[in-house]
Amino acid sequence: MFRFLINTLLVPLLRVLYRPRVEGIENIPATGPVILAGNHLAFSDSPFMTLVAPRPVFFLGKDEYVTGRGIKGRAKAAFFTTVGMIPVDRDGARGGAAALMTGRRVLEDGQIFGIHPEGTRSPDGRLYRGRTGVARLALMTGAVVVPCALIGTERVQPAGKKLPRIHRVTIRFGAPLDFSRYEGMDRDRYVLRAITDEVMSDVMRLSGQEYVDMYATKAKAA
């Protein structure tokens, strides 16, 4: 019941309320595995990608989002799974490997996998150095990478705020990046860094953000 209500009522309502501007939607291939690599400004970034994409988009989320009890917990779980979230326990030593393998399965099924290479939300609105998981996934699966810029999502749900606000956002999709020339080199750290930096360069160009050559987690810790 919750899933039906979300698909038929909530998702169309969100499109009407937020009226997202979408640019470059034609850059998302109609078939085959695709990695949508976007900047990360707010909790709502991944849901907005799924809201406007022409094909279903799957992304990772904390398993606690779908384990709540009661009506509220069930409704929350139905919302996140409906918009494409795959619950994964990302904590601990095995968390990163589990996340990578989950993304790989999605792509090997010919689907779209959404990822935020920064790994965590930007602490100040700037674009931070990307983690190389996006490059490993591209090389392991042969998926093209479509850079994505989310603009204005931090105003929808500022850090620390539980309830979203109504604010128009823009989602820009860049031209697909094909890294098949590096096939078989998914364990070469220099290749992985070069691919990741190329992806982040396109995200920076699309978003207009200032780039910081350090990881967002380090910036938050400082």
Rank of each mutant, 00 (worst) to 15 (best):
L177S: 07
R121H: 06
A138K: 04
V199F: 05
A159F: 03
N27R: 02
L5S: 09
Q111W: 05
A143I: 05
M185C: 07
F79V: 06
A138D: 07
D188K: 12
A222C: 04
R189G: 00
R172G: 12
D178W: 08
R105D: 14
R15T: 01
T141I: 10
G133A: 14
E118T: 08
P56K: 07
V66Y: 03
K72L: 13
T8M: 10
L51K: 09
G114T: 07
T102E: 10
L14E: 01
I25Y: 02
S207Q: 04
H167R: 14
P12Q: 09
L127C: 11
L17N: 00
V52N: 04
G142V: 09
D45E: 11
G95K: 01
A97I: 13
L41P: 07
Y65P: 03
V11Y: 09
Y65G: 03
G68K: 06
R129M: 14
I112N: 05
V144A: 09
T120K: 09
L36E: 06
L192Q: 07
P29D: 03
G130D: 10
I195W: 10
G103K: 08
A175P: 11
V11D: 00
P56C: 05
F79G: 07
G152E: 01
R205H: 04
D124N: 13
P29T: 04
G152V: 11
L14A: 15
P176C: 12
G73F: 03
T67F: 00
L9H: 05
T102D: 01
G103T: 06
S44G: 00
L36V: 09
H40D: 05
A75K: 00
E23C: 01
E23N: 07
G95C: 08
F173M: 10
L13F: 15
R121L: 07
T170N: 07
P176F: 12
R165Q: 14
S44C: 13
V106D: 10
Y182M: 02
L9D: 01
I151E: 11
H40A: 09
M140D: 15
S46C: 13
V34I: 13
Y128N: 01
A75N: 00
R55F: 04
E198F: 02
K161E: 14
Q111H: 13
G84E: 12
S207H: 08
